[in-house]
């Protein structure tokens, strides 16, 4: 669990991410041969050929978006698991992903011809609104305990999901297709606009969480221990939820709800990075970026065309979640 292990992990993860990034640029459903894609990549973004367009204007922004979303969701998952002292916590549990999804559905349903930036902005605002509601509602009647906050998150998730279902019931066939496509989470047709719109918020949110690593380390031991070492728990919780809302809202806004990344990745990297959040958050973010880029490459290259990223991560994540449950049960015996 020493620093050497963490450095090794970050180095290996960095090399892996670069390799996955290259694979994502060179491989895809288009019939573009790898050698031509490689040439177009080295030709730079100013190339005017079709190949340069595919690599620099389609595959590159898509890969950057996917990497950023993976990094954001995994970093948030690591932070939330510490905040709630619960290995099952991830951004979706608090309802932030669902809040973003509901807001986006409202836009798709009522303003189908709104400019491109409206959808991410709405999803971002929805995620933020749920985070604020979470803070206010869980604080009614006294200081919010972790259990109350978690239960409030589940209630808000349920509420937002009902809203989404209602919108789906009311929609016509065209809207239904659009909504279902967006809600299954994916990176199809993501442009540099999406990168500039969501990227800074995702990075800012994860940076905020990382800057509060000490608070999270102490909170992971329990509120009493955290306060005993001088941490203002209410303030810390506010910072962590704000960072999570910022990062997750931005991720949902550009990619739709992509589940289980925040749950899986911290568990996968923790044995190598150790439990300290100063190492776990960057390692998780790197791992999340790597996992999601690989999943996207896999989905585009080896699986039937049209399978969405969110569907794939759910297929991977559901058995993982079950394995965690079984492990927790065994540990409790």
């Amino acid at each position: 669990m020493g620093r050497f292990g963490l450095r090794g992990l970050l180095l290996a993860g960095g090399v892996g991410l670069i390799a996955a990034f290259l694979a994502s640029l060179l491989l895809g459903s288009s019939s573009l041969p790898v050698a031509q894609a490689w040439q177009a990549l080295w030709g730079g973004p100013s190339g005017t050929t079709l190949e340069a367009g595919i690599v620099w204007q389609i595959r590159m922004p898509r890969t950057v978006v996917v990497a950023l979303v993976g990094a954001a969701l995994a970093g948030c998952g690591a932070a939330l698991q510490a905040l709630f002292r619960n290995p099952m916590a991830d951004p979706a549990v608090l309802g932030i992903s669902s809040g973003g999804a509901l807001a986006a559905v409202v836009v798709l349903f009522h303003f189908p011809f709104a400019p491109l930036w409206v959808l991410p902005a709405a999803a971002f605002a929805g995620g933020f609104l749920v985070a604020i509601l979470l803070l206010v509602l869980s604080g009614i009647g006294g200081r919010p305990t972790l259990t109350i906050t978690l239960l409030t998150g589940i209630i808000l998730t349920s509420l937002c999901s009902s809203g989404v279902s209602f919108a789906l019931l009311l929609s016509d066939e065209y809207q239904l297709r659009q909504l279902v496509f967006w809600l299954s989470g994916g990176a199809e047709a993501r442009s540099w606009n999406h990168v500039w719109m969501g990227g800074p918020f995702m990075l800012l949110g994860v940076g905020l969480l990382w800057s509060r690593s000490r608070w999270l380390d102490a909170l992971a031991l329990g509120e009493d221990h955290a306060q005993a070492v001088g941490i203002d728990v209410g303030n810390a919780r506010l910072w962590v939820l704000a960072g999570t809302a910022l990062s997750t809202g931005a991720a949902v806004s550009v990619c739709g709800p992509v589940g289980f990344v925040g749950l899986m990745v911290p568990h996968l990297v923790r044995p190598f990075s150790g439990g300290s959040m100063s190492g776990l958050i960057p390692a998780s973010s790197l791992g999340g970026a790597l996992l999601l880029v690989l999943a996207d490459v896999g989905a585009r290259t080896f699986l039937p065309s049209g399978i969405q990223l969110g569907v794939l991560t759910s297929l991977l994540g559901a058995p993982f979640f079950l394995w965690l449950l079984v492990r927790a049960r065994r540990a409790a015996l």
């Binding site: 669990m1 031991l221 150790g274």
Partner: peptide, 12 residues
């Protein structure tokens, strides 16, 4: 309930 090196715990 969360893994943490003993030295990191004491360092808090």
């Amino acid at each position: 309930s969360v893994p943490l090196a003993v030295r990191d715990l004491v360092a808090m």
